[in-house]
Write a protein that binds this DNA or RNA. Sequence first.
DNA 1: GGAAAATTGAGTATCTTTCGCATCTTGCTC
DNA 2: GAGCAAGATGCGAAAGATACTCAATTTTCC
Lengths: 157, 157
Amino acid sequence: MPSRAIESPTVPDGDIQLESQQIKQAGLKVTAPRVKILSILENCGKRHLSAEDVYKELLSQQEEIGLATVYRVLTQFESAGLVCRRHFEGGQSVFELNSGEHHDHLVCVKCGKIVEFADSIIEERQARIAAENGFEIEEHSLVIYGVCSESGCQKKA
Amino acid sequence: MPSRAIESPTVPDGDIQLESQQIKQAGLKVTAPRVKILSILENCGKRHLSAEDVYKELLSQQEEIGLATVYRVLTQFESAGLVCRRHFEGGQSVFELNSGEHHDHLVCVKCGKIVEFADSIIEERQARIAAENGFEIEEHSLVIYGVCSESGCQKKA
DNA sequence: GGAAAATTGAGTATCTTTCGCATCTTGCTC
DNA sequence: GAGCAAGATGCGAAAGATACTCAATTTTCC
Ligand SMILES: [Mn+2]
Ligand SMILES: [Mn+2]
Ligand SMILES: [Zn+2]
Ligand SMILES: [Zn+2]
């Protein structure tokens, strides 16, 4: 096997640098729990995670971080604009990295699969409806619940 | 003052007959708690009520109905199609009579005012989006959060 | 009016999320 | 790099909403 030269002393696993910088830019102190949690949100494979999901992932990585801290940090990330919190029915809140671009969700009520979408016509209509009623929009939540095309989900009750 | 003839022996306060019939048609036994709760949903003035709201209203009417029963009955009414349950952010679930016609909501984040709306273009778009992604829609939730036109709500933070 | 089945009330349990507080870290200064 | 104040953490406890348990009561139907 080819030997691999160590190019520089600074390329730790998980790109700690990047996460640290994002956290700093968000106006938060760089702490181990924050870096860890952000890196899980970025690298764990799933895009929508509950606080519990994050906590379990931490446990599986032998990290000694309390659940209260997970909740606290996620809330701080939300305030700082790093993540978005979503409230889907019948479960815990879930968090996802804030991509900067708004989108809404399709959720399979059978398997939990989530599909993201953005529709400018819907957005436009919402703006009109709010305006017609004298509301200044702050945010909105649109979730479509249904059954996805997986065979397991399709079979009748 | 003109005297008023009693037209028939059957016109109790609160139109108990009507509620009883609705409950029966929904396939539920007619019990005092169910009749009472349905009549509150119909006559209390507010259209969107939490279980707690219903419970407080019952208390104020000297009714001896437990909170657990309120939750149970509201859930049964929901299953029976008599009421719809809504999940607005940051609070309890709220219930409203099922008018038979779907609608969505605008919610003032300052005063809690709720405006109902229905937009066929949005509905149509949702159907298309679901179809494009192979989903069969079961339901959806659209809530627009904003600040209403009340002067109290308008003033800057 | 009576019996079977369903419903109720009260309290308890559960789940998710937040708090309180003593202890530990971070970021900055010298 | 040591020292310090502000801020963060972990733990356990608390809170808020809702569901469950079960004995006692009520409804339905005959
Ligand atoms: Mn998403
Ligand atoms: Mn409504
Ligand atoms: Zn599915
Ligand atoms: Zn308002």
